[in-house]
């Protein structure tokens, strides 16, 4: 019988303590970051989809079309083409398509690139009504950016 009352009282007390805690938080400031109005900057290591790094002087991509990124990619989302051009050493990148919709952001491509030609972008809020929008032509994107 005493256990009955003890449980009753301690139980009721625990319920009031719970109310006290949530009540306290009711008056504390919110932690929400209101996205479209305010937004944080991504950390330097943030992994968005990959993008080409432009050469600082020419603005052209640094890529030499070795194809390591393509080979390293586990889900085959990179396809690139290059061509020999007069007066330029090595190949010149003509097409670099990233099918972002199958990418798993593992970073194998960036790691395998020995020339430092690709990096992760900071695009963190992609969304849109068309699937095709996310198959990026990275050269075009690079041109638009600069």
């Amino acid at each position: 019988m005493s256990g009955y009352f003890k449980e009753l009282i301690s139980g009721t007390k625990s319920l009031f303590i719970g109310l006290g805690i949530t009540g306290k938080y009711f008056f504390e400031p919110v932690v929400t970051m209101q996205y479209p109005m305010e937004h944080v900057e991504m950390t330097p290591r943030f992994r968005g989809h990959i993008e080409l790094i432009p050469d600082e002087e020419t603005g052209e991509p640094k890529c030499v079309v070795c194809g390591m990124c393509q080979k390293g990619c586990p889900s085959k989302c990179i396809s690139l083409e290059g061509e020999k051009r007069e007066g330029v050493k090595g190949k010149v990148l003509t097409k670099y398509i990233l099918n972002f919709t199958t990418c798993s952001l593992c970073g194998q491509c960036v790691e395998s690139c020995k020339f430092g030609a690709i990096r992760f972008s900071k695009d963190y809020n992609l969304a849109g009504p068309r699937k095709e929008d996310f198959i990026f032509d990275l050269i075009k994107r690079l041109k638009e950016k600069s």
Binding site: T43, R45, L105, G107
Partner: peptide, 28 residues
């Protein structure tokens, strides 16, 4: 409510891990 409190704490960890690994959930 405890779920959201826990998420609140969890977000701190995710921030830490994101600063190291670059992703929030499926780290590689």
């Amino acid at each position: 409510t405890p779920l959201l409190y826990a998420f609140d704490d969890r977000e701190q960890i995710l921030d830490l891990l994101e600063s190291v690994t670059g992703s929030r959930l499926t780290y590689c």
